[in-house]
Amino acid sequence: MTGTILVIGVLALIGVGLYGMMILHNVLKLVVALQILTKAAALALVAAGYMNGQLQLGQSLALTVIVADTMVAVVGLALAVQVRRHFGTLDTRALSTLKR
């Protein structure tokens, strides 16, 4: 039962995250969607540990993931600050000079 709920939770988070990344235009919101997606992965690791009886290992992996993904979030937010400063907006549609 718990396993099923965990799997559903993971899938839901993946869905929300990927959907958000496909439709959102704001850099900050994209970072949030990315966070949701990463949390899906962290949850998946915990769920995996729960299912095969190595919950502690799963949890420690999830913690490492959270640390690593904080780094990504920090860099992402730093870029967002610079984007706001140099483009005057956080809209990614303004960031489309590089194409073709």
Partner: peptide, 17 residues
């Protein structure tokens, strides 16, 4: 084919999906 490089981040993610 060069049109596929839209430069729009959302489309890039759509590519991955």
């Amino acid at each position: 084919l060069r049109r596929t490089q839209t430069g729009q981040l959302n489309w890039n993610v759509v590519g991955i999906v």
